[in-house]
Amino acid sequence: MGLPMWTSPFPLMEAQAHAIVRAFADPSSLDPITEAVDIIARAENFRGAGASTCLAVAKTWVRFVGDEQWISRDELYEFAEGVESETGTLPIKVREWEKECYDLRDEVRSAWEGLEKSGKVREWLKDVGKNGVQDWVDLVYRVLDYARRRSSSASARL
């Protein structure tokens, strides 16, 4: 378990943790032969893509490109299906808003930094979280809307 690069790390680690719990709770859920074949095939794919040394394969191993992090999380949750969590049922699939917000993270970060400089952060955060995760998702989209309005008004002044 660890922090792969170019991912949304903590949700991925949560999925890894659930899969680990499943493997410890039910060791027969893992097929050592299938797992070994998958590991060898993945390493061979990296070698075929230009990773010519063991170190290069190791460095590539922790980098997810494109949709790989979402596919990996979905597979981990699928494997862990049926494992209880403190918050109830595990998600079956990565939610679309997670993917979209991840892709827009630089735009959101820049806009949030602008809000911090303006001193309006407390106002924006008021009551966020009282109704759960959706409040935070809504905040991200409000920040994006703010950024885009700010950008278009700056463009209009030019």
Rank of each mutant, 00 (worst) to 15 (best):
1 M>S: 08
5 M>A: 15
7 T>C: 14
7 T>Q: 02
8 S>E: 07
9 P>A: 07
9 P>S: 06
10 F>I: 08
14 E>F: 05
15 A>L: 05
16 Q>A: 10
17 A>F: 11
20 I>E: 13
23 A>W: 09
24 F>L: 14
28 S>F: 13
29 S>E: 15
30 L>D: 07
34 T>D: 06
35 E>V: 00
36 A>G: 08
38 D>Q: 08
40 I>S: 12
43 A>C: 09
44 E>S: 04
45 N>L: 15
49 A>R: 15
50 G>K: 10
51 A>C: 09
51 A>F: 01
51 A>L: 00
58 A>R: 11
59 K>Y: 02
61 W>L: 02
62 V>E: 05
63 R>G: 02
64 F>R: 00
65 V>E: 05
66 G>R: 14
67 D>V: 14
68 E>V: 00
76 L>Q: 10
77 Y>A: 03
79 F>V: 00
81 E>K: 07
82 G>K: 08
82 G>A: 03
88 G>I: 11
89 T>I: 11
93 K>T: 03
93 K>M: 12
94 V>F: 01
95 R>C: 03
101 C>S: 10
105 R>Y: 03
106 D>T: 15
112 W>Y: 14
115 L>F: 03
117 K>S: 05
117 K>T: 11
119 G>Q: 06
124 W>K: 03
124 W>Y: 06
129 G>F: 05
131 N>P: 04
131 N>L: 07
135 D>T: 08
138 D>M: 12
143 V>D: 01
145 D>C: 10
148 R>L: 03
149 R>L: 01
153 S>K: 05
155 S>F: 01
158 L>N: 00
158 L>H: 04
